Amino acid sequence: MSPRKAVTFNADAVRIEGLRDFVSALKAVDAQYPKAVRQANYDLAAELVTRSKAEAASVGGVARKAARSLRAARQANASVVTGGGARYPYFWGAEFGARQYRQFKPWRGNQYGGWSGGPGYFLHPTIRSEAEKLLDVYMARLDALAGEAFPD
């Protein structure tokens, strides 16, 4: 199966089929490899955070403030970006807009809001526009790890 056939894109995520099994196989070779995958996942998420913050700055207003809460997390089987929290309760309003509260842009939460370009104002649009480029870099890192762990 081609690696690209195992990749699924949707509005909020990119899923790589078999990543968990790949990490398990790497772990069986040496305990250092899952740490390398975890670092690759973190680097991918950190780059997405950087690009999303730049997008939020171009959107301006509350989005710029809310984007300060974006963080990358280290996980072995996923690249995770988190946002919001107690200090940034307006994060989701800044990302998706609102129908009722005027401090936010118009609602872009789903296709039922009358906007067909996809959800979000800064994080989700960045995922949609940058996923292919970031995935190429990420897959190259995984290929390098696989070549190192399983030489021909």
Rank of each mutant, 00 (worst) to 15 (best):
R15Q: 15
L19S: 02
L19Y: 05
L19V: 06
R20Y: 12
D21S: 15
F22D: 03
F22R: 08
F22N: 04
V23Y: 09
V23T: 12
S24R: 15
S24I: 12
S24A: 15
A25C: 08
A25R: 15
L26A: 10
V29S: 09
V29Y: 07
A31G: 12
A31L: 12
Q32C: 09
Q32H: 12
Y33I: 04
Y33A: 08
Y33F: 15
Y33G: 10
Y33W: 13
P34V: 10
P34S: 10
A36L: 15
A36P: 04
A36I: 14
A36K: 15
R38C: 04
R38Y: 00
R38S: 13
Q39F: 08
Q39S: 13
Q39V: 06
A40F: 03
N41M: 09
N41E: 07
N41T: 07
D43Y: 01
D43C: 06
D43K: 13
L44Q: 11
L44A: 10
A45Y: 03
A45N: 03
A46H: 11
L48T: 09
L48H: 08
V49G: 00
T50K: 13
S52W: 07
K53C: 00
K53I: 00
E55C: 02
E55F: 01
A56T: 00
A56L: 03
A56E: 04
A56V: 03
A57Q: 12
A57Y: 05
S58M: 13
V59E: 08
V59I: 14
V59W: 05
G60E: 04
G60V: 07
G61L: 11
V62I: 15
V62P: 00
A63I: 09
A63T: 07
A63Q: 05
K65H: 10
K65N: 11
A66L: 04
A66E: 02
A66T: 00
A67V: 08
A67E: 02
A67G: 03
R68F: 11
L70K: 02
R71P: 00
A72P: 03
A73T: 08
A73F: 11
R74W: 09
R74G: 10
A76T: 13
A76I: 07
N77Y: 13
S79C: 02
V81I: 13
V81M: 02
